[in-house]
Design a protein around this nucleic acid. Structure first.
Lengths: 218, 218
DNA sequence: AAGTATTTTAAACAAATGATTAAAAAATAT
DNA sequence: ATATTTTTTAATCATTTGTTTAAAATACTT
């Protein structure tokens, strides 16, 4: 028992073909299976099969299902929150420019990995203690450029006097909900891949317009 | 082995204290545990403990975990879809009256059972074949009063010319997303129960206003 | 009250599943 | 080339978990 996770990073090895290494194959497979089935529904055997490796290698490289899950979850959470945080903390864009960037960036991101929001929300409900701390949700809004801009704009009457959380709920709701309710929404309207995709593309432009209409004072 | 589920309905028994019967105790517990942990995460022992009954009674009354789950899921799905369907098929209300009814009815419903949306969306992702058929999603919009009204209103220019699915996505997104992302949203803003509740109450009035601003032509 | 049917219980079973082991294979170092 | 270390494999273990069984307790019928 020599080479567990991070071992390769502690020693500085040649790191040949990192993307085809066994460790990376397992992580990639774990991402797919965990995203699709969640922690409880995913079996280590599913992951091993998806990765095309022997079951024992999972424990050899990552010690346990839970440790592997923690790594995948942390990465997913980072990917999901990071763009959001950087946008909201950027002082060089206006409120509505932020919305624009969010819409474009998030719809592209979620088209690549559509299961991420439901995965994160589910696991966050099932193990809140563990994940809420990891997410550092306080730093997301509190003291952000967005918060300051929002409060200022309410004061000047530029935008309507409603709680900031409504703004966030509406933006994220319109952005993320389609990816959470995909099976329901798609079967309701019997959309094929192409028209589903075009609806998502339309929303990149429409969501910023809608947000303006909702919150801007005219 | 005599009395499985439905047996009591086939024979017509006195049905004394139906709400405290063992069968009902199990269903109530199953609802709580399945909603909280999902099918894969829920153990029959959890349900038995929650119900305060012997583990074997679960199989005695419902044959299997899966059969019990199917019953709970069907009821949850009905509760979630039914109000929606009846609103959207009502020809006696305008589009925006429908939105108003939806907002009030759904926020009240989801305040009672906040885990339902995430539960349904998760399980629908994990077993789509099984659930999509059960949901009859085609009949939900297709041929509804809402569909006719929407198309007519677009033609007269009363509302903007955007696909109907955007309307549904936005309405449901704004309505349901707060209940899906509760842990994230609440920890972001550090709201206590009271202020969280008041935000939800505010949304009953605000969502209809927002929907008007988004889709009505001015 | 006795007999029968129903419900409940404790115990055990069987399959699934996360994890480990010890040996084989492959890679690396000397 | 040989020795050593690292990686991979097949088999097995130990626990968890859905389900069953057989007996005990309770309710119901006549």
């Amino acid at each position: 028992m020599t080479c567990y996770y991070f071992a390769a990073e502690k020693m500085n090895k040649p790191h040949k073909d990192i993307d085809t290494s066994t460790e990376e194959k397992i992580k990639k497979a774990a991402r797919i299976v965990f995203h699709r089935k969640g922690f409880a529904g995913a079996r280590t055997r599913d992951i091993a099969e998806e990765a095309g490796i022997n079951l024992a290698l999972l424990n050899y490289y990552f010690r346990s299902k839970e440790k592997l899950f923690d790594i995948i979850m942390l990465e997913s959470l980072k990917g999901f929150m990071q763009s959001m945080t950087s946008v909201f903390h950027n002082p060089d864009t206006t409120i509505f420019e932020k919305v624009d960037v969010m819409a474009n960036r998030y719809i592209d991101l979620l088209k690549e990995e559509p299961e991420i929001p439901l995965f994160i929300m589910s696991e966050m409900r099932h193990h809140p203690e563990k994940l809420i701390a990891e997410m550092k949700p306080r730093q997301f809004l509190m003291g952000s450029a967005f918060e300051q801009q929002f409060k200022a704009a309410v004061k000047t009457g530029e935008i309507k006097n409603v709680k900031m959380i409504h703004f966030i709920m509406n933006l994220l709701g319109m952005l993320v909900f389609p990816f959470i309710a995909t099976p329901m929404l798609r079967s309701m309207t019997e959309m094929n891949d192409e028209s589903w995709n075009s609806v998502l593309e339309e929303r990149k432009k429409l969501i910023p317009q809608w947000i303006k209409l909702m919150f801007e004072n005219h």
